[in-house]
Structure formats: C-alpha cells, structure tokens
C-alpha cells in the first residue's frame, strides 16, 4: 500500500473536490510518480494557478505557491530561474493554462525551461459553475453556452509541440497507471514537459450535458488510444479517437542551463575587461 500520507497536509482534509472528481485521482498519480523518481520534499516547488485543480497545492507537503489565475507558469519561471536546484512542478487547469494564461503557456514552451506541467483538462470551468472553456467540445452545453458551444476547442498538446515544448504527453484520469509513468517521464525530462490529463467534471460538465460520472469515465476509456497502439491502426479506426501516451519528445537546449552559461560568459568578459 502506497503511503500517500507522508506527502499530504492532513489538516487540510477533507478536500474541496466534488465526489467523483478526477482531481484526486491525478493527485495520487502525481505523488506516486514523485515517489518513484525519489525526489525529496524540500527539493520540490509546486506552483498552481486558480481553479479546482489548482487547489491541489494546498494539500501536498512541498514548497507550494498558489498564485493568480492563469499565471502559475510566470511565477514558476521565476522560481526555476532564480533557484535551479528546485524541481518545479506546475498544476494548472484548461482555463488557467489555455485561456487566461495562454500567452504564458506558449512562451514557457518556447523557452524550453525545465518545468513539469500537469494540465488538468476537464473541459469546463468547474470552480465558477461550468462556464464555456477553451477546451469544451463544440456543441456541448455550458452555463454560458446553453444552446451548445459554437467555439472550436484547443488541442493543448498540438499547441505545446508547435510552441517548442520538448516533452508532450497526454493521459487520462481513467488510465492512472499509465499516468504515473507519463508524469514520471515529465519530471525526469530536462526541459519543458507538458502532461495533459483528460479528466471529468461530472458536476458541472456531466450534469448539464446529461452524462453520468460512469459514462464520462467510460468515455475516457473508449475514446482514447495509446500512441503505440495507434501506430498499428488505420485512419478509419482512429476516427474520433484521442491519442494518449508520450506524443512528442525532443532534445533542445534547456533555458536555465543556457542562462548559467550566459552568466559564465558575462563574468569572464567582465573579468577580462577589468
């Protein structure tokens, strides 16, 4: 039995997440991944924005920074650049990272700064009551799109790959063992790592769209295909499926390491001039 309690602030429980929410499943997966990598609690800085998933940082016993809406990547960039020895893990939601924080998201990818980002994608704004998100599938109902959304949704992984992220993976809250490995790979990766996690908000996405928690979890199972299995499938078989697993991995200089070299060059030049 995995000892979750050694990583938790037990005085913070019970948590605020609704029964059936995917956030707790992902949090447990994250703690197992941290344990497998063998990180010490003092070496971890966990930074989050605003939203249901971003409340995670209050529950875990690390150096935790619960910031403003959409801005965790900006804060995390400051933490990592100022103190590279910290392992910086960012907890963000789909609204946090892709709407209000979209600019920070693409630029953190571009810099390839060594952050591990868990993007909890529940396709809605849960904390504020189920408004339309940049990830809500077209046609689905939200409290601000009662007749169904006409907006096309973002694909966070494609966006990250295009912007320059060097580790891009997608998992689901249904496939929690796979998720452990994806997060572990992201933490070990030197560079910007995105793990998008498809999860459910049965309260504010499921209810208005008349789908139950079980149906939402079943959807995560039935509509996703592992990237390796997908290689053997025809385009017809992949129609409407979402690919999971490590979608992209690249080797590119990491920002903080480059900055350390920049400092060394600047100091050598200053010494030579003196």
């Amino acid at each position: 039995m995995f000892d979750y309690e050694k990583y938790l602030r037990l005085e913070m429980f019970p948590h605020i997440w609704c029964p059936g929410c995917g956030d707790g499943i992902v949090m447990k997966s994250l703690l197992r991944a941290i344990d497998r990598v063998g990180l010490q609690k003092d070496e971890i800085c966990m930074v989050s924005g605003i939203g249901c998933s971003s409340r995670l940082t209050g529950y875990v016993d690390f150096n935790t920074l619960h910031t403003t809406h959409g801005r965790p990547l900006a804060f995390a960039t400051g933490v990592k650049l100022a103190k590279p020895s910290l392992n910086v893990i960012v907890i963000t939601g789909d609204g946090d990272a892709l709407a209000i924080g979209g600019n920070h998201f693409i630029h953190a990818c571009r810099r390839n700064i060594d952050l591990t980002v868990l993007l909890f994608n529940n396709a809605t704004y849960g904390m504020t009551g189920g408004q339309l998100a940049p990830t809500t599938p077209t046609g689905k109902v939200a409290s601000t799109a009662r007749q169904g959304s006409i907006d096309p949704p973002f694909d966070a992984c494609k966006l990250a790959i295009a912007a320059g992220a060097t580790y891009v993976a997608r998992g689901t809250s249904y496939h929690s063992q796979q998720l452990d490995r994806l997060i572990e790979g992201g933490i070990k990766h030197k560079g910007f790592a995105l793990i998008e996690i498809l999860e459910n908000c049965n309260t504010y996405y499921g209810r208005p769209n008349k789908v139950s928690l079980l149906e939402l979890l079943q959807w995560e199972k039935d509509n996703t295909v592992n990237v390796k299995a997908a290689e053997r499938m025809t385009p017809e078989q992949l129609q409407g499926k979402i690919i999971t697993g490590v979608l992209h991995q690249a080797d590119r200089p990491e920002y903080v390491a480059m900055y350390e070299e920049h400092i060394a060059r600047a100091q050598a030049k200053a010494r030579a001039a003196a």
Partner: peptide
C-alpha cells in the same frame, strides 16, 4: 549576469510581475 544575477524578458507585463514574485520566494531580491 556580471554579478551572478538573472535577467529575463518576459512575454508580457503580467508575466514579469509573476516571475519576480516566484524568484523572491527563493530568497532573491527582485
């Protein structure tokens, strides 16, 4: 960089403010 410090040009004003606050949490004067 000459004194071992760090300068970063961020993507916008909001990010610049966020970045200095993150850095300050590690002990830096920002």
């Amino acid at each position: 960089p000459q004194v071992g410090g760090r300068f970063i040009q961020m993507e916008d004003e909001i990010a610049a403010m966020g970045a200095i606050l993150g850095a300050a949490m590690t002990g830096a004067k920002v």
